[in-house]
Amino acid sequence: MKTNKILVATQNRNKFREIVKLNTIDKLEFLYKKNLIDIVEDGNNFFENAYKKAYETAKYYRMVSMADDSGLVVDALNGAPGIYSARYAGKEKNDKKNNTKLLRKLKNKLNRKARFKAIIVLARPDGKYWKAEGVCEGYITTEPKGENGFGYDPIFKIDRFNKTMAQLSLEEKNLISHRGKSIRKMLDKIDQNFTEIFKGGINE
């Protein structure tokens, strides 16, 4: 059976693992590539960044590509860190420093409600695209807990489990996470639009 391939536009192996874990389409394979072209994320929102990454990658490598842009939106900080979540504490994108800065910003704040948002875009080299969105509600703890996950997972608590995301297994996280929800929605769209997505000999 022929397998169609989608290049995932990320250098984050944790994100890639989550996508592969959720894939239920037998004739579909997700690819990870080291040293992808460098794309400046200069969009004004999650969608603009995700689309730019997916489309520029698809155009450069001449194959269907998928990218996400996601981040943490904190009510008491007027939506920050938002699209700057990965580099909240600096360009080096250090998870520990990002968490430390966020906890410092929320010190003495009573409202600790927050949500993770993820936008996934699948793009063909000609610019045609499909979009999916996922949201996960929770709140920010006062200290990190857990060893799993990445990013803000150690300080983002889910009421349903009474645990931080970093205390969940990958299977538990994928059930409720913003990325898990958006990936499942995207997989449904891929399944429903398979022929159109891969038409024109792309990936052959």
Rank of each mutant, 00 (worst) to 15 (best):
K117S: 10
S169C: 10
V73T: 06
K2R: 11
K97S: 12
G149E: 00
V8S: 00
Y55T: 08
D42I: 03
V8L: 09
N49A: 09
T142E: 11
A114E: 02
G134F: 02
Y84Q: 05
N35Y: 10
K131Y: 04
K5I: 05
D42C: 08
A54F: 05
D188Y: 04
R17T: 11
K93C: 14
E48Y: 04
E172K: 02
Y139V: 07
K145W: 03
S177W: 05
V74T: 08
G127N: 10
G90M: 05
F161D: 00
L106K: 00
A9F: 13
K157H: 11
G134W: 01
G71V: 10
F47M: 05
Q192D: 12
I19K: 00
I37N: 11
S65I: 07
D69V: 12
N193D: 06
I155D: 01
A80M: 11
E41N: 08
I119P: 02
I6Q: 00
F46S: 01
N174T: 06
T195H: 07
G134D: 02
N98T: 12
I120P: 02
K27T: 14
T3R: 08
L187C: 11
Y139C: 14
K113F: 11
T100W: 02
V8F: 08
E143G: 06
N98G: 09
